[in-house]
Design a protein around this nucleic acid. Structure first.
Lengths: 159, 159
DNA sequence: ATCAACATGAAACAAAATTGCAAATAAGCA
DNA sequence: TGCTTATTTGCAATTTTGTTTCATGTTGAT
């Protein structure tokens, strides 16, 4: 668990916008040589600061999709039930995001399916088949205004 | 708005997992030459099928953060108010995701802040200052089990 | 002051991306 | 069906980018 200095943060800010930026260009932007940039990036990938490098695909262009936000209410708060349920969500590819939350509900999910019918089938598989789920509340997204995983600029500053 | 063939889908499946995969390797995997792969990728970037290429940064490693899910209830459903509010959310860097939804509420947001105090300040800026927001319900995430934007495998198949 | 550990830039090197071109394939159209 | 015109492909050459090497410089501890 090493430390990140302002150079690292500057590099991260660029990479989370566009990880295809040439190292030479990054170097100019942050004030380092390309070689130094390359070493820092390598280190951050190995240490896990950079988790992955991905292309972001435009949903609308690869077929119609339904985005759903689901609030899940558990019956019991017993750890083993929670853990099992969490694992169910983690495995399902349709579950894009899963948050373990406080308050009335226990989980909030963001789900992506091809159709409402597909969602209906999914609910049977991951909700109705689980006796520890008391109930769940589905919110249908009509439009995805914004969807990203980027960390706000201000976070990537000094420590 | 061109069409995607099975080769394109196969390439997309690889790129959304790891966009640093060499084109030669992609070519071997999908059964094309590296040059052909390169042209297809270029086309998909230009046409917007591939929206962006980003590094994914590990939240925990760049400082403590609070993830919040917020349900927003509007007073009026008038288009101009909705549009204005939507724009507010779109601009705010702390708002990672914004969904326009059906049902009791009108928007669901996923927000990332440095602290609860920072969130409190944010609410004043984007919620309380907006007279068309009747109220909002905040869910605090204790743990992010899973968070991605990748499109499930099955979606990237034939058309 | 000396030493050790480490980060740096410049240059050499390796690997990958990109382009030019001829051949193969697919798509209209008579 | 046969012909023509678009595309798309693979290969090889070229260019760009990423990676490693190495000598130098900096920092901090003894």
């Amino acid at each position: 668990m090493e430390e990140l200095d302002p150079f690292d943060f500057a590099i991260l800010r660029i990479l989370q916008e566009n990880n295809m930026t040439p190292q030479r260009e990054i170097g100019e932007a942050v004030g380092l040589s390309a070689a130094a940039v390359q070493r820092r990036i390598k280190r951050m990938r190995q240490s896990g600061v950079i988790e992955a490098d991905r292309s972001v695909i435009n949903r609308g262009r690869v077929g119609a999709m339904v985005t759903l936000i689901v609030e899940v209410f558990m019956d019991s708060e017993k750890i083993e039930f929670i853990d099992h349920t969490r694992n169910t969500f983690e495995i399902a590819p349709e579950v894009q995001q899963c948050y373990y939350v406080t308050g009335e509900s226990d989980f909030v999910l963001v789900i992506l399916t091809e159709s409402m019918q597909a969602y209906e089938k999914l609910t049977r598989r991951i909700f109705f088949s689980n006796p520890n789920i008391r109930h769940f509340r589905t919110i249908v997204a009509m439009d995805v205004i914004k969807a990203g995983m980027t960390i706000p600029e201000g976070f990537l500053k000094k420590k």
